[in-house]
Design a protein around this nucleic acid. Structure first.
Lengths: 256, 256
DNA sequence: CTTGACAAAGAACACCTGTTCTGTTATCCT
DNA sequence: AGGATAACAGAACAGGTGTTCTTTGTCAAG
């Protein structure tokens, strides 16, 4: 048995890949064979061509072939080998802002908000007082809250009974402790007559109060006697953890 | 005084810009003069060259000149659509490009984002190029976007086929035009083999790509061949109008 | 050691590609 | 109307650029 072609990346391969990445990051288009040759100090374009063919065979890049020859036809492909792909993936972002996403997350000032407890449809609703003995603290990007407030606290949602408010099990809601809401606010409230906690839009209607779910397919709750409605807070933000690294933050605010 | 050179963009200019954008979006490298010529149906390369010089003079693109001639040396520059972008001075400095003419440095709390079209499950997905002929503009609180980008555009959601992404009929989604997503990003993508537009979380898995709906009760889509997946943009923000005066803004971002 | 295939060097080829040149047409301003 | 210039058309040029060819070196298995 004679030699077999190498399927592992040696220094030159990595150097070529790095060169391509850096070139794209810098100029927004891939280098030519000769530009790679000069950058890595290869002795011939054929060496670079040879290595590029190998890298293409390994699925690390693709050289476009539309039937005719094309200049700068190298495309980096997303693979686990190509560990720096994230940077290369920023190809487009590089045209504008090239900072990695984590950088912006780090720069952001975070607010610490106490988690006062859980909100469950059938269980008593923790109020702001419970935030003084917090179960936990949660970090929230300050930019998502329209104003600084010392009356912020968080509740963890248990169960899917709040699904009408587009809030799922496990979500965290950030509340501002208020006793009186404005029209259109989403409020966390306790319904004394029903012994029920709920998240609804607050719509005063004369002496009555209409509590309207976010999901329009659900029905309104009409509270005839406002004394039966115990408003605990105004929903500022809903945090939904998609997976370990991604969250969605739903901001509730007025618009024009 | 005889004629003065035009400083406004006519149809051909826009067509050339769109062609460049689409080409880059498709192949990851810019088109040649002749490829542009064929794409826009121009009669000569000199016409394209003439227009490219004009677009460069207007600060919309830059043709790299390292002393020697270079193939595919077109670089798109951040457009005046989002003039805040001019602040990213190092970019312009590094590229030796002139800043866009209309560059104004004023801090606005609201960003104007072009609405490029509608996203429907079964209809072709508008891309960033369509943002050059926007149907409308929408104002977005700048504080909800983690960074300034000139590549933002908006799509209006039609139908409830995207309900698995927690997006309803009539919502507006703000996208950043990117070619490659990072793990965990929610992307707007076109599935070539299915002829279908979708909003899903992007999860690379070796050579495959898993598209995971936000609603965990729905099933993943596994894309075996990444070439079948045409990523149009990364979802930055979902705007949901609750009623005339209230919106919810759902921010998608990484968390730690 | 011999052998066979991988790998590299260097040169050459054929085509791609930005650019320029010359001439023509269209349009604006006086 | 008429001059001046923008804008276009077509072709040609000069050099960039992917690819291939030949020759030579290198390594591992028999």
């Amino acid at each position: 048995m004679p030699r077999r072609p190498s399927n592992s990346l040696d220094e030159l391969d990595k150097k070529i890949l790095a060169t391509i990445r850096e070139w794209i990051s810098k100029y927004h288009f891939p280098p030519t064979v000769r530009e790679i040759k000069n950058a890595v100090g290869a002795s011939s374009t054929s060496v670079v061509d040879y290595r590029l063919k190998k890298l293409e065979r390994l699925g690390l890049l693709k050289r476009l072939d539309n039937g005719r020859r094309q200049a700068r036809n190298i495309m980096l492909l997303p693979t686990p080998h190509n560990s720096d792909f994230a940077k290369e993936g920023d190809f487009f972002e590089a045209m504008g802002a090239k900072q990695p996403l984590e950088a912006t997350v780090e720069e952001e000032t975070q607010l610490e908000v106490p988690v006062a407890g859980r909100i469950v449809a059938g269980a008593p609703l923790p109020s702001f007082a419970d935030a003084f003995t917090p179960e936990d603290m949660i970090e929230v990007p300050a930019s998502l809250l329209p104003k600084r407030s010392s009356r912020l606290y968080a509740l963890e949602v248990k169960g899917n009974s709040m699904i009408d408010a587009m809030v799922q099990d496990g979500d965290i809601i950030i509340l501002e402790a208020v006793e009186h809401a404005n029209r259109g606010d989403m409020v966390a409230a306790w319904l004394r007559d029903r012994d029920e906690a709920t998240l609804k839009y607050y719509i005063p209607d004369g002496k009555r109060v209409i509590l309207r779910p976010a999901n329009s397919s659900m029905e309104d709750i009409v509270v005839e006697n406002p004394a039966e409605l115990e408003i605990k807070g105004r929903v500022m933000l809903v945090i939904h953890r998609v997976d370990g690294a991604t969250c969605t933050y739903t901001v509730h605010r007025k618009c024009i």
